[in-house]
C-alpha cells in the first residue's frame, strides 16, 4: 500500500471513531486537502449524512469532488449537504437542492448567529444521529472575514456543542491563511501535513501518529 492510501485509511479509521482530523498544506502545491474529500467519499456513497462546510467557491468544490470520483449530484439534498459559506458571504444564490446559504446581511458576528440557527434547523428537519463533517478549505476564512481566527474558534465551538455524534475533518492551505494551524494542533486527534521539498511532494502524520495527545 502506498503512503497516500495508508494515510487515507488512517483518516477514515479516525473518522469512524468520531475523532477530529486536521489536514494542513504548507505549500500551495502539496494538495493534501484532497485527502479530506477522498476520506468522506465512502460515507457519502454509503448514504451516511455528510455535511461539507465549504469556504471555497462552489464550482471549485464540484471540480475537486469530480477529481476524486465523487458523484455528488446523486447524493446532494438526500444525504449530502453543502453549507456554502463562500456563496453566503458573496451573496451568490446557488439554486440547487442540498446547497444551503445564509441570506441577508452578514459580518463576522452575524454569520455565527445565523450559522447556529441554520445548524439547528437542519438538525430539526433531518434528525440525524451521526454526521460526518468536512470543513473544506477553512483557510478561506481569511478572505471572507475580518477576524478569521475568531470566526474559526466560534464556528468550532458551535460544532462541539451540537447534540450529535460528529466526526470532522478540516482542511487548510496555510500560506493562504497563516495562524489557522494553532487551533488545529490544539484540538485535533490526528493531523496530516502536506509539504513540498524540491521536486518531492510529501504527506506526513504530524500529530496523533506517535501517541500525541
Amino acid at each position: 500500500m502506498n503512503n497516500e492510501n495508508r494515510l487515507l485509511e488512517l483518516i477514515i479509521s479516525a473518522l469512524s471513531s468520531n475523532k477530529i482530523v486536521g489536514i494542513v498544506d504548507r505549500d500551495i502545491a502539496s494538495f493534501g486537502y484532497m485527502l479530506g474529500l477522498k476520506a468522506i467519499k465512502g460515507d457519502v456513497e454509503r448514504g451516511k449524512y455528510v455535511w461539507i462546510v465549504s469556504y471555497d467557491p462552489l464550482q471549485s468544490l464540484f471540480r475537486d469532488m469530480e477529481r476524486v470520483g465523487l458523484n455528488y449530484e446523486e447524493h446532494l439534498g438526500k444525504n449530502l449537504f453543502i453549507f456554502d459559506v463562500f456563496g453566503s458571504i458573496k451573496g451568490i444564490e446557488p439554486g440547487m437542492d442540498g446547497v444551503l446559504t445564509l441570506k441577508g446581511y452578514l459580518d463576522d458576528n452575524v454569520f455565527i448567529v445565523k450559522y447556529q440557527k441554520l445548524i439547528s434547523e437542519v438538525i430539526d428537519s433531518l434528525k440525524p444521529e451521526e454526521v460526518t463533517v468536512l470543513g473544506h478549505l477553512e483557510s478561506g476564512l481569511c478572505r471572507l472575514f475580518k477576524n478569521p481566527v475568531r470566526v474559526q474558534r466560534k464556528a468550532w465551538n458551535l460544532m462541539m456543542e451540537v447534540p450529535l455524534k460528529i466526526s470532522a475533518v478540516r482542511t487548510y492551505i496555510l500560506p493562504e491563511c497563516p495562524a489557522m494551524d494553532e487551533l488545529v494542533y490544539f484540538c485535533s486527534d490526528l493531523v496530516v501535513e502536506g509539504l513540498v521539498e524540491g521536486n518531492r511532494r510529501r504527506l506526513i502524520v504530524t500529530k496523533g501518529g506517535g501517541d500525541e495527545p
Binding site: W156, N157, M160, E161, L183, F186, C187, D189, P213
Partner: peptide, 15 residues
C-alpha cells in the same frame, strides 16, 4: 483567553 471553553474541556479530557 482565546479558546471556547468547550474546546479546552474536550482537549483536557483527552489529555
Amino acid at each position: 483567553i482565546g479558546m471556547p471553553l468547550s474546546v479546552f474541556l474536550s482537549v483536557t479530557r483527552r489529555f
